[in-house]
């Protein structure tokens, strides 16, 4: 037992498991209260700021409830030597988590899944023709994960891209939604995500009225999908306004 790396465990594991079982039961009922006191169609308060890291071309920090994310954008800079010639610019995305981002200590490894999702969500919004032969690197670090990580990373990354002066058709804002039986719950926390019956995430460009990414999991009826989409798109438009006002504030600060 003494040999090899030390075996450790988090003392709160048992507690959480019990907690989750209780929650799962309550989510099946028609009416329940969300742990943070929001109603079902209410998003968490968002705090956004650009210029989080000075060494990057552009960066942004986002805090939605207790989910905290930093995104840095580097470039456009020289592509890797092994890359083939390309008329249009490339996007290179990487999403990683800190070891303390979740309630039990993780490995702090890269999230390959989210990395490619982030790239796909942003690719359609960036005018890649403006930086041929070069690469724009988008690196995200999740400081604390408390649900809705991917949509927050996407929104934060589009803000960082704008801060870096990368040409885009429009800002991308993303919002997720969970389905519990008859109820649709917007901007779920990780606790809610763990018990959901189905989920929907939309990344949207409100001014062009175009969706760059749409993921749907679980069992849905067509009517429910339509209702959920309406909710998400509405929340995306509102979030986009927040992103825009954050950028404007920055410019005003600069000119003062």
């Amino acid at each position: 037992m003494a040999s090899g790396p030390l075996e450790t465990y988090s003392p709160s594991q048992t507690l959480e498991r019990r907690h989750q079982q209780q929650k799962r039961k309550s989510f099946n009922e028609i009416d329940w209260a969300r742990s943070d006191g929001r109603n079902f169609h209410q998003c968490r308060p968002a705090y956004l700021r650009t210029g989080a890291t000075s060494s990057a071309s552009g960066s942004a920090y986002a805090e939605f409830g207790s989910t905290k994310v930093i995104v840095s954008v580097f470039g456009p800079r020289e592509s890797k030597k092994a890359m083939m010639y390309s008329d249009v610019g490339r996007l290179n995305c990487n999403v990683s988590y800190t070891t303390f981002s979740t309630s039990t200590r993780g490995q702090g490894s890269d999230n390959k899944d989210f990395s490619s999702m982030l790239q796909k969500a942003l690719e359609g919004a960036i005018i890649l023709e403006t930086f041929p032969k070069t690469t724009v690197d988008i690196f995200a670090l999740v400081l604390e994960s408390a649900g809705g990580d991917l949509p927050i990373i996407i929104s934060c990354a589009s803000l960082a891209l704008a801060d870096a002066g990368i040409m885009m058709y429009d800002l991308v804002s993303a919002v997720s939604l969970s389905c519990f039986g008859k109820n649709l719950v917007i901007d779920p926390t990780s606790e809610e995500e763990a018990c959901q019956d189905g989920s929907l995430m939309i990344a949207y460009m409100p001014i062009r009225n175009e969706v760059t990414q749409f993921t749907l999991t679980g069992e849905w009826s067509t009517a429910k999908i339509n209702e959920a989409m309406e909710l998400c798109l509405d929340a995306c438009s509102k979030l986009s306004n927040i992103l825009r006002s954050c950028l404007k504030e920055n410019v005003l600060d600069f000119t003062d």
């Binding site: 890291t53 060494s55 990057a56 960066s59 930093i70 995104v71 840095s72 580097f74 800079r77 990487n94 990683s96 890269d110 690197d137 690196f139 995200a140 670090l141």
Partner: peptide, 10 residues
């Protein structure tokens, strides 16, 4: 992490 400096790649 790669966010901290332009010289660090993932």
């Amino acid at each position: 992490p790669p966010i901290c400096s332009p010289s660090i790649r993932p």
